[in-house]
Design a protein around this nucleic acid. Structure first.
Lengths: 247, 247
DNA sequence: GTCCCGAGGAACGTTCAACAATAAGGAGTC
DNA sequence: GACTCCTTATTGTTGAACGTTCCTCGGGAC
């Protein structure tokens, strides 16, 4: 998991500064999608402002950004917390995935062949990661492939929208207790999908995609049910984590 | 409009307060999509904080919300302004419209018949508005129809995403100098589309949709070109509106 | 006359401290 | 044991301040 190689290395010119709020948001986003901050974690701005050494106000701005990404929910005076995906949310996510990715497959004929040519590399990288046992990277590469399928449509807006979908999906990945079982099986199916796309067999690709997403959704919902049940029992039991605080 | 059975006469409790920032954002959004604040208008937080009687910090939050909706652009230290849609933006918007609305048409068979049954009313309301000469409402009802087509997919996320697309489209509507010519012709074509959908002629509907959006895009791009040229000349001429300030 | 460049001002980004408003949780009562 | 009230912690918003960055305007050189 190579991070962004030594962030702070004194770069005074900093043309186009990312902005403090954006930096905090990026940091939190990272922690959320890696599972370091699991769903249900309360995100209190006072606490975060201390941890990240920024003003409370800046934290607020970062939280809004994450809220727009669908990684955080907040109610008027009840504060913010890492989003807990419900089954309905997951169903919605997969509906979006189906319609948009199907469009991507549909548009694969008129797309730039160069983009198609890069698809196999995603599968290859996933295999490599699987060999090393870094299952998180396996999932990352699978999602990257599907993001690239959407990229065939050549629409920056759809790309950005789909990126938020992907990020929310990671919320579920992170809370699976056996990530190997969650990710391993999809490599072959991704490869099959890529083969069909490159061969130009659009109809077959559509069918495979539909089945792929249907199966994937079932699995994800299973993970949600399991973790949901765990959360319930843990809420009834003594004082498990009545409020999962940050540190 | 019956509110939520107001047991309490006054509304001091204001359950689920919209939040000050949200209110300011809504106000600005309204002003933007009605053309009261045309593209290129600088949105300086200090000025807005005075006008809306809120803190500068709250204005900032509102601007962020509008930025996420694609109605406002802002660069790191250069401030915010009402977004100016480029031709590339418009092209992107119509690409998104095509793929998502086409999906909606595709999903029209498995959709709730009740939803389909409401489509003609949008056309009827558009005709009514046209008779009264309120062309803005004509456009509104057309967009509502297309939003409803997307609604057939039953995905809240897609609905929300498409709503931002629609809002950005209004940025262009607002700056057309002859809105009648911009909106009038689409009523008949909307009706045709609705007829095809209700008859279940999906294939025909797809074809009509494709042509519809293609023609619409051409027209929108024409508007953008015209206003863009106007902006250029007005920028070269004396001191036309070197910066369109708010008040 | 045109171009480059530097000073000045305007606006932004961020911080801090404070207060009001609200939701959550606990004490006390019936 | 359930209900009500109260305390408390946390949020939402404000106002002022300061450093930083961008934009513009004006002077000087070619």
């Amino acid at each position: 998991m190579r991070s962004d190689l030594g962030a702070d290395a004194a770069e005074p010119p900093q043309r186009n500064a990312p902005g403090t709020a954006a930096r905090v948001a990026a940091s939190l986003r990272e922690q959320i999608i890696t599972g370091e901050l699991p769903p249900r974690t309360r995100l209190k701005d006072a606490q975060l402002s201390q941890i990240h050494q920024v003003s409370r106000n800046t934290v607020r701005e970062a939280l809004r950004e994450l809220e727009r990404d669908g990684l955080v929910t907040s109610r008027p005076h009840a504060g913010s917390a890492v989003k807990v995906l419900t089954e309905a949310d997951a169903h919605d996510i997969y509906r979006v995935r189906y319609w948009i990715e199907a469009a991507g497959v549909e548009g694969s004929t008129s797309a730039d062949p160069e983009q198609l040519a890069r698809f196999p590399s995603f599968v290859a990288m996933a295999r490599e990661a699987a060999a090393e046992g870094s299952w998180a990277d396996v999932g990352t590469n699978s999602l990257r492939l599907h993001q690239a399928i959407v990229g065939l449509l050549g629409s920056p807006m759809l790309d950005a929208f789909f990126a938020t979908i992907v990020a929310q999906l990671r919320l579920v990945f992170a809370l699976a207790d056996d990530e190997a079982a969650l990710q391993a099986q999809w490599i072959d199916r991704d490869e099959k999908l890529v083969d069909l796309l490159i061969s130009g067999m659009r109809g077959q690709a559509q069918l495979e995609l539909r089945q792929y997403l249907s199966d994937s959704e079932a699995q994800i919902i299973e993970v949600i049910r399991a973790s949901g049940a765990a959360a319930l029992t843990s809420r009834e039991s003594p004082p498990p984590r009545p409020r999962a605080v940050i540190e």
